[in-house]
């Protein structure tokens, strides 16, 4: 395991995790993971299926709270605030740390209402014009505006899978979060839709801290600047993406990347 999780940083990391353990009932899914996530770049989580990538990702916005059997230990901070502290408001945390799921899950509402959902919840718009502006800018940043601007009142569930996923991204960025967590956002999409999402991630980089879980090595190499390799619940190696893919320290990482391991 990497002894210095903060390598390559000269500024304060956006999120830091120290000594995180996650249990589902008796079973430990995450073992002593420490990692820093910075706003400057995209961080990719890779690793074989079942190694705990999603579990760890869901710790970062406390979505594991919704799983009855899950128990999280250790310390996770957002801007140096402990997100598991009693003083932390989960609702606010999730507004600051947005999430995009593996399967597009737009609400069965209009496209407009899907994007307006978060801003309405958190009271971000004072009037209709405000809301229109928020919706338009979120859809623009998600690269969806030109495709849907004439049919904002149509149902969000009636779009193609790739459009739905971009709608979910628009929905997540409409509340101007600081971090965006993406759990295999392209696994249900075809290569063209995937390319659109990857472009989008690239455009969003720098504005938000982005963490993306992916099974696709090329994707990790293309979109991320930092890569974390998980194996059996532990963080094996965390480094610059170029280093991980060209010159990994650990043989386990090398085996996985070169396809010698599951």
């Amino acid at each position: 395991m990497n002894q210095n999780p903060a390598i390559g940083h000269n500024q304060q990391p956006k999120m830091t995790a120290r000594g995180v353990n996650v249990f589902y009932g008796q079973k430990q899914a995450i073992k002593d993971v420490s990692i820093d996530v910075s706003s400057d770049h995209v961080t990719a989580f890779i690793g074989p299926s079942g190694c705990g990538k999603s579990t760890f990702l869901r710790c970062l916005n406390r979505m594991n709270d919704t799983v009855d059997s899950a128990r999280v230990e250790g310390r996770i901070e957002l801007d140096s605030q402990d997100i598991y502290a009693a003083a932390m408001d989960v609702v606010q945390l999730r507004a600051r740390v947005g999430m995009v799921f593996q399967k597009p899950n737009p609400f069965p509402k209009s496209i407009y209402e899907n994007v307006a959902y978060g801003p309405r919840l958190h009271g971000l718009a004072r009037n209709k014009a405000d809301m229109d502006a928020i919706v338009e800018s979120a859809l623009r940043r998600a690269g969806l505006w030109d495709e849907v601007k004439d049919r904002l009142s149509e149902s969000g569930t009636a779009m193609s899978g790739g459009q739905q996923q971009r709608l979910c991204i628009a929905r997540a960025i409409a509340v101007d979060p600081e971090v965006i967590l993406m759990d295999e956002p392209c696994s249900a999409l075809d290569p063209i839709a995937t390319a659109r999402i990857e472009e989008l991630i690239d455009e969003l980089r720098g504005r938000y801290a982005i963490v993306i879980v992916t099974h696709n090595m090329q994707q990790a190499a293309r979109v991320s600047q930092k890569t974390a390799f998980f194996h059996l619940g532990s963080l094996v190696e965390y480094d610059d993406t170029s280093t991980i893919f060209t010159n990994p320290r650990e043989t386990r990482t090398k085996d996985y990347i070169t396809g010698r391991y599951g």
Partner: peptide
Amino acid sequence: AMRDGSLAMGATMSETVKKVMVPA
């Protein structure tokens, strides 16, 4: 996924029920 989507947006459980679950 619908429920998770809403919770992940920072909605409380009752907001999720009212705005997403019941309409769906």
